[in-house]
């Protein structure tokens, strides 16, 4: 991890923009996917894959690598874009994403996409699996850190809190969760479907250190993830406040864009708003 210079901040912001463009193109080409929750996680994923995670694209199963679990597996387009841009495989491998002969699945599969540490899809598993990985690191005296990215709607499921309890019991300071708190889920606003607040109090009461950040501010995300590593007595969660569909005006805060696919016209407008015309 290098010092966060203004140049690095710009670089990460540009990567987040690029990952948004990639994700929307992937979803459009495939005719399926989840743009809203992919776009909201762009800065978080960019910071992790291009600044925080100790990983080696030439050796995806390097034993000392940091682990990352995309618990909100439907954000796969964003993850695949990041893995490709980070060099785990060419972006062109996703040209036929969705076809039965494309190895990359709708949701991440650890055997089919290099760089994916754990298969995911159905929601709720990430924190508890992260507990297992963090315990394994402790038992084997390994220094890797485990990161889990989960969604807010996902946090309505009990297993998330079972995992949270276990992480606190074992004081797993080598586990950090990031909650992409975009406040919109498939059926509508989270606070209407099933309110989560006061969410920071809940995680805190569960024995976690809670850090609240603007999930679209690269510097805030980086600083909080660095702080998490310095906390040695408990696991940490970043409540990353984000905007569903961030960066595309007609997708922002719209539940209808949770799992909708942009048509050609919508894609062009979205890419224009993301400044893609200026870059190509």
């Amino acid at each position: 991890m290098t010092a966060l210079t203004p140049e690095k901040v710009s670089e990460l912001e540009e990567m987040a923009r690029r990952l948004r463009v990639d994700s929307l193109r992937l979803i459009h080409r495939r005719g399926a996917g989840h743009p809203g929750g992919a776009l909201s996680a762009a800065e978080i994923i960019a910071v992790l894959y291009f600044h925080i995670l100790r990983i080696n694209p030439a050796n995806p199963t390097w034993n000392e690598r940091d682990r990352f679990i995309l618990s909100k597996g439907h954000g796969s387009a964003m993850l695949y874009a990041a893995l490709a841009r980070r060099g785990f495989f060419p972006l062109s491998d996703l040209d036929n994403w969705g076809a039965v002969d494309c190895p990359h699945q709708g949701h991440p599969d650890r055997f089919k996409t290099p760089g994916v540490d754990m298969t995911s899809g159905l929601l709720g598993h990430g924190v508890a699996i992260g507990v297992g990985l963090a315990l394994a690191a402790r038992l084997k005296k390994q220094n890797y850190h485990t990161y889990v990215l989960l969604g807010d709607g996902e946090s309505q499921g009990g297993i998330v809190w079972e995992g949270a309890m276990a992480a606190a019991k074992y004081q797993l300071s080598n586990l950090t969760a990031i909650l992409d708190y975009n406040n919109v889920q498939l059926d509508g606003p989270v606070h209407e479907v099933m309110p989560l607040e006061p969410l920071a109090d809940k995680w805190s009461a569960w024995g976690w250190r809670v850090l609240e950040v603007n999930g679209h501010e690269v510097r805030q995300v980086v600083d909080a993830l660095r702080m998490a590593i310095q906390i040695h007595d408990r696991p940490t969660i970043l409540l990353a406040h984000t905007t569903k569909g961030k960066g595309v005006s007609f997708m922002e805060n719209q539940a209808s864009w949770h799992g909708n696919v942009p048509n050609a016209e919508q894609l062009n407008q979205a890419l224009a708003e993301l400044g893609e015309a200026m870059h190509e």
Binding site: I129, G132, L135, L139, G163, A166
Partner: peptide, 28 residues
């Protein structure tokens, strides 16, 4: 004792924690 984990009455959690331990190279 160092290789035993009691997760309370939470079977789904135990399965997932075990999956994580297996990813970390153990045989849970």
């Amino acid at each position: 004792p160092e290789r035993f984990f009691n997760l309370g009455i939470a079977e789904p959690c135990m399965v997932d924690v075990a999956a994580g331990l297996a990813l970390g190279g153990f045989v849970p």
